[in-house]
Amino acid sequence: MKGRMDSRLDRIEAAFRDAGVTGYLHAVDVDSGREIGLRADEPVVLASVFKVPLLVAFFRHAAAGRLDPAQQVTLRPEDRCAGPTGVSTLLDEVRMSLRDLACLMITVSDNAAADAVFAAVGPEAVDATVAELGLHATRVVGSGSDLHAMMLADGGVDDLGELWARLGEPGVLQRLRALDPLSTSRSTPREMARLMAKIWRDEAAPPAECAQMRRIFGLQVWPHRLSSGFPYDDVRVSGKTGTLPTIRNEIGVVEYPDGGRYAVAVFTRSLLPTAVLPQADAVIGTSARLAVEALRRPLPGRPQARG
């Protein structure tokens, strides 16, 4: 058994190598706890995956009556965090409920929506949630706007376009604290997979709130990472990506029609500072599939009905 898992890890490692990334992975069977991991306890940069602990804190607050998820919030264009999707890209004032903002922050990784949710929940509540769930290696350090400001300051640039243009200059990537797990929002693959498993087991918040979170993760639009590893019409893939220069992540849950469900967290760092690197996106799906297949193999001497 051990030998089989080891050879599976070798294949996962080879997939990461072929894609030109360093990969960190943990996958766990949501119901049995059976697991597989590669550098699963090393600190990793969360990037937009920080929106997951934020979402959990939001729904725990909502369940406890400390905020009203249907409360309307007005977002003015000049106050909004930059970003490539959602409310961040709009031109005019937007009025929306907190829970709809939470939906956008996950489904399209909307930074303006995430900052509004962060402001409503507060950093202390996110810290408390992370601590209460036993995620000791996880820290959420600041909002999207904070991270944006830090990247511009570290890069010595006026906007992210300029940062991308100068990313090939020696030393620029090294200076960015946003890419250093010890200086920014961080976790480990094991803890992020555990968090997703808790959401799927109704343990991260009351069942009704967990169900709302699962709905939102299932509506995430991106097809290029975790989802690309499971080209099966009857398999549901729910997740949340995270992206910064050289950083490509996704954590999620893969659900098979036989009831098997697996929480997976994959974090990668690419050698090339290229913005568009399809193989680095796809290997998140490939490595997740290799891991999930290993978890779906029957244990020796214990035949299983799943097929």
């Binding site: 490539p84 999207g144 944006h148 991106w222």
Partner: peptide, 10 residues
């Protein structure tokens, strides 16, 4: 050239 899927905190 920015693309949404590889943009800031996508």
């Amino acid at each position: 050239v920015p693309r949404p899927a590889s943009g800031f905190l996508a």
